[in-house]
Each structure stands twice: as C-alpha cells, then as structure tokens.
Design a binder for these strands. Structure first.
Lengths: 137, 137
DNA sequence: TTCAATGCAAAAGTTTTGCACCTCT
DNA sequence: AGAGGTGCAAAACTTTTGCATTGAA
C-alpha cells in the first residue's frame, strides 16, 4: 500500500500529522465514520487536534478525490476512502454501514440510465434493512 | 385520488389546514422539496404557517408512512409522498431530483442481498450525473 | 522565511424543543 | 371542554468561517 505521506504530496497537500492521521484512519477502517467519530478516535493520540481541522481536512480530501462523502440519511455525513462508487447496506437497527461490491449493478444501471437521457457520473445504491447481527437478536 | 382529509383521519391525525396544505403539496409535485421549500411555497396562501410546524408535520407524516425522507447529499432533506422505495437521479449541475421507476432493479437487488445475509427492507439507488437540460447547455 | 495549516471561537444553516395560545373534534 | 396542534423563540446539532498563532517546506 502506498505511503500516506506520498499520496498527500502527490495531491499537492502539505503533509501534517493531522492529515496523515485522518487519511490513515479512513484507509484502515471499513466503518465509514463521520467527522465527529474521526475526531474522537484520533484525539487521544493527537491531543491538539481540533474538530474544525477534521472538517477542513475532509473537505480538501473530498475535492482532491481522496475520499468520498456518504449520506445514508443520518444527520451527519460519513466518509469513505474507497473512491469507487459502490453500493452500501445500512442496518436499520444498529446503523452499521457496510460496502457491497458487485459489478453487475454498475452495468445494469448504466444501461438503464441510457434510456433516460441522463448522463451517469456516479451511482449510489443503499439497501436499508437488518444486518446479520441484529437479525439474530 | 383519495381525499387528503380522509387519509389524514385514517392515520389518526387531526385534520388541520397546515397538514392538508403540506400533504397536498407533496402529493401534487414530483420535485421532492425540502422543508424550507415547502414552507416558502405554502406561506403566501397560508400566512400563519410556521416552519416549525412544517417540520413537525413532516415528522408525523414520516412516522405514519405518509411520506418518505430522501437525502441526496444536500444539507437539507427532501420529502416524497411516493412511499415505494425507488431510485432517483440527481443532476450535478442544477441539483434537480427525479424519480426512476424500474422494477428490474428491485428484483436484482433482492437476489443480490440474499447472498449477503442482509434482510432488505428498503433500497435507494441514486444516480448522480447531468440531466438532459444541463447537458444541452 | 514564507505561505499554508491549525485551533479556537464565533457564526451559519438545518432541525428540534418548550411553552403559551389556539383549534379541531 | 379537552386533547392535541400551532407559532414563536430559544436551543441543539452539524458544518463553516475568520483570524491569530503555529508549523511545514
């Protein structure tokens, strides 16, 4: 996996501990955390970090194509370092968000969209329901 | 089309001019307005209406299954009186939100989700891109 | 050294809440 | 008459912004 430092530099960003921390966290989790969660997770190890910087950092990352923002209907946005448009599941009980990875969808949707006179740039499918864990209880 | 008054009554809601106005508006538009837009649209004809009431009304409607909330990544939520889970297109230029209606998707997604140990209750597909109008310019 | 990033605090925007008054039933 | 709804204002919450200080190059 490419060094975080190198990736930031390639995007023309100054490399700061805060930016490294945010990007590393997003790369190493599949949980799609929101800004608040990112802040609370990183704060113990980076005591000077501020929430405003997390927001500013996420905004830069988003504009430079390092992360994507994901809104599943909660009040706050989640963030994902996987840049490819892809479907998600959202558990209606615990709220967990998971990735799906299915090529089939993409092809089908593009074909369908062609019939609609709408030029698809990105697609997001969200399946709301109960995850395996919450169904068991 | 069923009377708005009757529908509200069946849900156990008191029938007020504000509730009638909000529900009628949502039923008669395909634009998926947000609370602010609903308020501004209705305010001229209902001068005493307040934004807080629009929010409270939408919240009741949502919980009683009269409308669904739709979040396409904007800061504010949009609302739709079509209750069936269905896909949308979002124009990245003008921001317009349109419904798609394609049965195919539902079937495919349910089949795919079965493989995932995830019980699908509702699905939302959002295609981001350029609408016909914005592509022309 | 210089320019950009950070952190703080204040502000902005959306949504919720408390409460006195009003209105539907 | 009574339960519940409305409107107003204040509050809550997420996100953005301004600015003085700090830090990367």
């Amino acid at each position: 996996m490419k060094e975080t430092t190198q990736i930031l530099r390639e995007k023309g960003l100054k490399v700061t501990p805060q930016r490294i921390a945010v990007y590393n966290m997003l790369r190493s989790t599949t949980q799609h955390p929101n800004a608040e969660t990112i802040y609370k997770t990183l704060e113990p190890a980076n005591p000077t970090m501020s929430l405003a910087t997390v927001y500013k950092t996420l905004d830069y990352f988003k504009q430079l194509g390092l992360v994507q923002e994901l809104n599943v209907g909660e009040p706050s946005s989640r963030y994902d370092a996987v840049m490819k448009c892809h479907p998600h599941t959202v558990c209606t009980v615990c709220g967990c968000v998971r990735d799906l990875d299915m090529e089939e969808l993409t092809e089908l949707h593009k074909k369908l969209a062609q019939q609609l006179d709408f030029e698809v740039e990105c697609e997001q499918l969200i399946l709301y329901g109960k995850c395996a864990g919450c169904r068991g209880n």
